[in-house]
Each structure stands twice: as C-alpha cells, then as structure tokens.
Nucleic acid binder design. Sequence first.
DNA 1: TGTAGATTGACAGCATACTGACAATCTTTG
DNA 2: CAAAGATTGTCAGTATGCTGTCAATCTACA
Lengths: 170, 170
Amino acid sequence: MPSKPATPITIDAVYAAPGYLFRRMQQIAVSIFMEECKAFDLTPVQYAALIAIHTHPGIDATRLSAVIAFDRSTLGSVIERLQAKAYVERKPAPEDKRIKLLYLTKSGAAILREIIPAVERAQARMLEPLKPADRKVLMGLMTQLVDLNNEASRVPLRAEDALEHLGKGG
Amino acid sequence: MPSKPATPITIDAVYAAPGYLFRRMQQIAVSIFMEECKAFDLTPVQYAALIAIHTHPGIDATRLSAVIAFDRSTLGSVIERLQAKAYVERKPAPEDKRIKLLYLTKSGAAILREIIPAVERAQARMLEPLKPADRKVLMGLMTQLVDLNNEASRVPLRAEDALEHLGKGG
DNA sequence: TGTAGATTGACAGCATACTGACAATCTTTG
DNA sequence: CAAAGATTGTCAGTATGCTGTCAATCTACA
C-alpha cells in the first residue's frame, strides 16, 4: 500500500503546479501592466523603483534593492535607464565616497503622478475575472505566502528596517 | 463626496498590489525550485519544456510554445541549451521543411525521472507556510485566475487543442 | 594606527521574456 | 499554375533576474 502515488510525467501535472501558476500569472500581470501603461514607457520594475525613491529620497542603490526586493546587480541597469529618461538623479554622498544617493527629478515626480491611474487600472484588471470576495481571499493568501517565504529568495524584502540608519523612520 | 480615495504615492501601496505580489512570489518560486534541483542543472522552464516534449514526442517548437505558454522567440534558446546538454534531439520533418521535430534523448528521459522528487519537494515548499486548507483555496483561485486571464498574455496557453492536427489527441 | 573584514557599485556571464523583423517554406486562392 | 498570404524558425534588440567577481572605500578591532 503505497502512501504516495507516483506523479505521472505529464504536462497536466505542470499545469497544476504552484510554480507554473505563479510564473504564468506573473507573465499575465506584466502583460496587463505594459498594456495599460504603454503611453508612459515605464516597466513594472521601473515604476516600483520610482515609487521607492519617491518614498525614500536620498536612498542608495543597495538599500533600494532591499526596499523593493530587487536584485542589486540588476538594479544598476534599471537606475541607468531611469537616469537616461531623466526621471532620476544620482548625487555622490558627501560622507561616503562609495555611495551615490538617488533622487527623483521633476519629470520623474510628474510621470509618477500621471501614471498612477493607469497602474490602478492594470492592478484592477489582473483580478477582474474573480468575484470581489475571491479577490480579497487571494490577495490575503498571497500576502501571507510572500511574507512567510520572504527569506527564500536571494533578496528578501527589508522594508523600513533597512532604512533606519538614514534617520527617516517615523 | 469622493467615491474613490486617491491612492497615495507610497511604497506600501506597491507592497499590496497584485502585480507586486505575483512578481515577488515568482521570484521566490524560482529560487526554491533552483535550490531543490541544483543537483540537476535544470531551470523551471527547461523542466517544463522537457515534460511537454515527453508528453508530446515529435512536437515542433511553435506548438511547444503554445503548450507551455512560452514565448516562441525565447524558446529557441531554451531548446538550444537542452540540446547542448543532450536531453533533446531535433529532426527535420519530412513533409514540411520548415519544421524541426523535438524528441527526448535517453538521458533526457532519464533526468526527467530522476528530477521528479526534487521538483515535488520544491512545489510543496512554495506552499508550505500556509495551512493545508489555505493551500487548496490559493491553488484553486490561481488556477481560475490564470485560466480566465489566459488571453491577456502574449502567448496564451493552447494545451491539447493546439495539437489536434498531430493526430495524437484522445 | 594599521590592517582585516565588510560594504558599495560596477561588471561579466548566463537564462528567461518580450517586440519586431526576416528568409525560407507552405497554403490558399484566383 | 502563379501570386498573395500565412507559418516556421531565427535573429537583433531591450529588459529583467540570477551568480560570481572586483576595486574602491569604509569600519572595526588588535
């Protein structure tokens, strides 16, 4: 009497696997975001970076990567592109020659204000096929799961506590 | 009396957004997969491709991309890497000179058998932090959502019906 | 003080993902 | 049969994401 039936090597097993569903949903989410925001030429990641810099002006790249759970290596090129679009400025930190501080430019702050409605539409569209009650349940479980699995990724989210030494914490 | 409060431009709004949660969870899922399967040097995507080829021997690249909802452009390099590892063979189709048919090699079939337990462990670990009942609810909602949003991505999933003309369908 | 260790940003290299284009080839239709 | 149109695989280009390395710099400790 086998306690676990052997998984058949079938594509249907893949369709039901959590990893597959998460990958697929991410794909769909990015696609919807890009569609709603195509007038702004901003990717989801660039948007998150702008928001984070807006929330924490003068943050450095390493801390930014912790705040949006984003790989430090990749973040360099993301910032470069935001800089090329003149949405972000980098200033050397006076007390630490290694660090470059990040600030939104005026057009960076402006595009952030303008893109918000499109982002809202995108976020709403992702969940639209579900009944309102189910949307809440799904978001609740996803929030839990992401939080409880935080340490499993290379770049765990370190939201506020990563910024304490900046002296901005409320 | 405003019907919708304006969303504040804050990083906390990002943390609660579906798009962010899906991206984050995907990151975590890949990380867990790679950790459990590091002995096998296979990525999640390469694994899915192997399974699909196993299920549909003699499939071509375009149909494969439909079966795993995977971009056709990207798939080329994925297959190349699987070929380099000698897990996959490509044979020209006799009746259509454009098409190259895909088959698993013996070592491809072998690694598939061997990696299954590691993949199962990975899939289980992704949901482990949740209570068993919640896991079912989450998977149910994700399955629904991915299915109902199928057309929203560039490469909608076309599982079996994409393969009818191959004469393998049940 | 001096140096070992940590941090920061940059880079090289690999692997998804997407857009758009292209030649070769097949199919449809006049 | 010939031309128009569709399909297939491939490529160039851009943008995440990851591992690992490195020099410059800062910190902590002997």
